[in-house]
Write a protein that binds this DNA or RNA. Structure first.
Lengths: 336, 336
DNA sequence: GTGAAAGCGCTAACAG
DNA sequence: CTGTTAGCGCTTTCAC
């Protein structure tokens, strides 16, 4: 299954009539080698089919040229973009990309980090479930970049929830809604907190009422309970923690014979795959997910370099925009 | 960012009053060490916070305890289950899981394999786009397991397309359809070939006509052209290469005012996220994707072991079943 | 059952 | 600019 003997720096060195260190430099430190020598070495290497061993390189240098991304669950299409953006950027930089799932558990997340620590140069943590303190502790030992999560002092990339939530409030207000209900994700979720904060603040500015219900599991299956709770509350407009939940809500509402958006408007977050073809098509807050992943890896790339670039942004906020589809409409006539 | 000095086998050895080799054995070859000695060594290691370096282990032993999975594109929700199943199985076996995307390109796939070759013990190739010969060549140098693809002599895990396609044909026949149109994926796609073969064979047995149209890009965006081609052909029933394409077809049909399933029935493959909430909900062939991923890793795990287990199945065929929803119905009355 | 010694393949001082 | 010399942290014969 594997060749009897791989060619090493020494084979190339002997064949090229130089020292092993020169071969090494020719590959990893081109400018420290005479151009001619280098070309010759590379030619010989090519001829011998030599490829540096990433393992040996990593063992010696301490740099693994590998990074890991940890995601709560791949079943949420929301993460596609982020994963893909991160993978692309990593591969482009010749960095190996490890993907791990945390099963929505802070403990699993922590374990994964410990487990991979020696094999990677850094971590991209997407929607991390760990408490601030744990995260900060880990950051002392490892290179971390957060996506859609912020912890004081740690580099992060987030989609702008404040402005996005304000856009949602404005949209609902302009449709004549006098109040909204936020159907929350897990209470320990940082995003849920951010969204609720921004939503209620926006509602306040608009003189609208705002209520938080939940928590609900941020999945399609959570939509049943969420929809029922919303109906009981008499809401005319609900904002779901994410599109998965929103789609579940739409489904339950349809089962109950409640018209969307005539009787109730529904808004989601993320603009996931399917948000445009569920019925009615979902009004939702879209953000550049792929860019978020790309950007997180970018930060890791510069952070990892010897001289951490103080110029490079350590906190990136990406713009979001509301995609208005068919799940939102004028508030029902209160007279009826 | 990293501790000043990591604890090594030597630290543990000194502290435990044994040789480094004994520490090594205590971890990797428990039965070659006196139980008491071992317990002592492990205790000391624990106290010192020692964790073996995967890099050093790999460099020395040649086993990396890592595997890579290559997937054409994460944007297709079809791959979620497979990825998750593979990741879970790998993590459970304490194997690091690398994920790469091939951008639907055989060349990229090959490059990724070469790039990762030294860092992993084997590859899971999902819906590989490489030609048989290339795959066979690579298999001489690397441990490969294919998912939803078969190449002579190579281990593979596939969802049963033959029986699945037969189920589709039977279903359509029972609804009175006299012919079907297969809206094909890429012609170089192995799956497309398999599906068409099974579909036309099944149709033959049922005395139905079968036509293949395409190729179409197996994405939602491909649905426009596919639907138009189907309409021109006068089909009463179309089978799309996958759910992505089927959903795109549904959308175009709706735009054209064509009633599904009254005027035309639509069937997909994969039962992806969204297949149950698009409109009409899609009749589609479902398979145990997660099991496929799990199983592929399982094979890799046994293949990699010193004595390749001749008992272990090298070719796994997983059962599929048709999920009948609302996109299929009785053939339209030919009299009308 | 345990220890000593020799590397796995590479890079990083340090000379020259 | 290039060669020499040590290891990185672990496993693996080979003795004892």
């Amino acid at each position: 299954m594997s060749s009897p003997k791989r060619t090493t720096v020494y084979d190339v060195a002997r064949e090229a009539g130089v020292a092993a260190s020169t071969v090494s430099r020719a590959f990893s430190n081109p400018r420290r080698v005479n151009a001619t020598t280098r070309r010759h070495v590379l030619a010989v290497a090519e001829r011998l089919g030599y490829h540096p061993s990433p393992l040996a390189t990593a063992l010696q240098s301490g740099r693994t040229a590998t990074l890991a991304m940890l995601v709560p669950d791949i079943a949420n299409p929301h993460f596609f973009g982020t994963i893909r953006g991160a993978e692309r950027r990593a591969t482009a930089a010749d960095i190996t990309f490890i993907l791990g799932f945390t099963e929505e558990s802070a403990d699993t997340e922590r374990d994964q980090i410990e487990r991979l620590a020696r094999s990677v140069d850094g971590f991209v943590l997407a929607s991390s479930r760990m408490p601030d303190s744990t995260t900060a502790d880990l950051a002392r030992e490892h290179n971390l970049v957060l996506v859609n999560r912020e912890v004081d002092g740690l580099p992060s990339v987030v989609v702008d929830n404040a402005s996005g939530s304000a856009q949602i409030v404005d949209h609902l207000a302009s449709l004549g809604h006098r109040s909204l209900v936020y159907l929350s994700g897990p209470h320990q979720s940082w995003l849920a907190g951010e969204r609720w904060r921004a939503l209620s603040a926006g509602a306040g500015r608009r003189g609208m009422g705002a209520t938080r219900l939940g928590p609900f599991p941020p999945q399609v299956a959570g939509g049943g309970a969420a929809a029922d709770a919303a109906l009981v509350s008499g809401a005319t407009a609900v904002v779901a923690h994410n599109d998965l939940l929103a789609i579940g809500i739409l489904r339950r509402l349809a089962e109950r014979g409640v018209q969307v958006p005539e009787q109730i408007s529904v808004v989601g977050y993320d603009d996931i795959f399917g948000a445009d073809f569920c019925v009615p098509a979902l009004t939702t807050l879209a953000g550049p997910q792929e860019e978020a992943g790309r950007s997180a890896v970018e930060i890791l790339l510069t952070t990892g370099s010897a001289r951490a670039d103080p110029e490079s942004p350590r906190r990136v906020v990406l713009p979001s925009h509301l995609v208005i589809r068919d799940s939102t409409g004028p508030a029902p006539d209160p007279g009826r």
